[in-house]
Design a protein around this nucleic acid. Structure first.
Lengths: 221, 221
DNA sequence: TGACGTGTCAAACAAATGTTTGAATCTTGT
DNA sequence: ACAAGATTCAAACATTTGTTTGACACGTCA
């Protein structure tokens, strides 16, 4: 009769294989993208048999869908959209919280550090999963940012100018992940994206954006 | 004895096969990315035999390298970095020209319309070609933007604050391509990226950025 | 005309990949 | 202990892909 730890080391049991596959798939999909990720590599990392993907998820595509859903859920759990700020907080504070939480999600370290990279890939090469992801996760965030910007500009969130400004804000956040291979080559001495650096960028993006937004308010009076 | 146009319709000649491969490869690589693009599809579109890629370019990877070099060169030819503005022009005008030319390159229509998409892909999934592309093309542009921003802020281009602000400017431009699948789903009624829309975005990005930059000047005195 | 170099071709090759299959093993409940 | 369902396994399958190969066609030059 082997001890519990020996059993775990030898063979995963119950829903554990499913979870191991999810985690391993996240990594591999982030590194290689959907098409280039191989079921064999995912199963190798998960310590599972090749047929496990079909058994637990149906096929590779459904595994991918599950991974997207899972990772986005995990990230929003860890870093809620406004990091716990109440709706009545000043819009400037809310903008900073929105920016910081987005950056934290993108540059998360630890078991789900592949999230940011996976999202960046999905943007460039959308799969069938993007439709539901946009509706479930991205649109709510887009609406929220629109409300914050609209509050600062004292305009409805659906206003064209509000929308353009919201794009100007969110683009500054996503940039650091999308262009990181170029950035690493342009500025090899830039420090790692640790929480201090992330906070610094969030401060800059907020400051830059607020200054710009304030000028849009003045112009419109 | 067939006429000239009949010969062209039947079989490409001289360096024409090489050129057809370059163009077709640009399209396919932009659509599918380097790894997923197949030599068979490229040759099918070019009307060439499978072995032509190895004959003219050595292998798939060298073809890709050539395509990147070719397309970037074509774009800079068509839309020079400052669209012909002299170095003594006001920095505000130079900033607008930089932004507009970058957007025009990214959203070019016509035979090399795949350029923007190809560049977005290369950012996310760098190949060996990115190193030389960064040195030959991207770094000069980065230096130029640093100079423009430095001129506005009255600081050296290598200043940390100048660099952060330059990122804030360029990120607003690349965003529209990187996130276009999401944007199409969030706002399905947005108009196409015609020259009018591109000009509108360039105006907005310049205005937003100038307002922000002006506030950085004031703070530093 | 013959030699040489360039360019094209179809077939072959070796490797990789997601999915399927039937057998074996494990787990749970009676 | 046995039955039933769940889970895992190795092998097989069918398809795809970049590269190679040797033959052929074409153009140029002495």
């Amino acid at each position: 009769m082997r001890s519990k730890s020996e059993i775990e080391a030898v063979a995963p049991s119950h829903d554990e294989t499913r979870q191991l596959l999810l985690e391993a798939a996240g990594e591999v999909f982030a590194e290689a993208g959907f098409r280039n990720a191989t079921v064999r590599e995912i199963c190798r990392r998960a310590g599972a048999n090749i047929a496990a993907v079909n058994y637990h998820f149906g096929d590779k595509e459904q595994l991918y869908s599950e991974v997207l859903r899972y990772s986005h859920g995990k990230m929003l759990e860890k870093y809620p959209a406004l990091l716990g700020l109440p709706a009545e907080a000043p819009p400037e504070k809310k903008l900073h919280a929105f920016v910081l939480s987005l950056l934290l999600r993108i540059f998360d370290t630890g078991p789900t550090s592949w999230h940011g990279r996976l999202m960046a890939r999905e943007m460039i090469e959308p799969t069938a999963a993007l439709d539901s992801l946009v509706e479930e996760r991205i649109r709510p965030m887009s609406i929220q940012l629109g409300q914050i910007v609209g509050e600062i500009l004292n305009r409805p969130p659906t206003d064209e100018g509000v929308r353009m400004c919201a794009f100007s804000v969110v683009s500054q956040c996503t940039f650091y992940k999308h262009c990181s291979p170029v950035m690493e080559r342009l500025f090899p001495k830039q420090p790692d994206m640790d929480p201090v650096a992330i906070g610094h960028i969030a401060d800059h993006v907020t400051k830059f954006s607020l200054a710009a937004l304030k000028s849009f308010v003045e112009k419109k009076r």
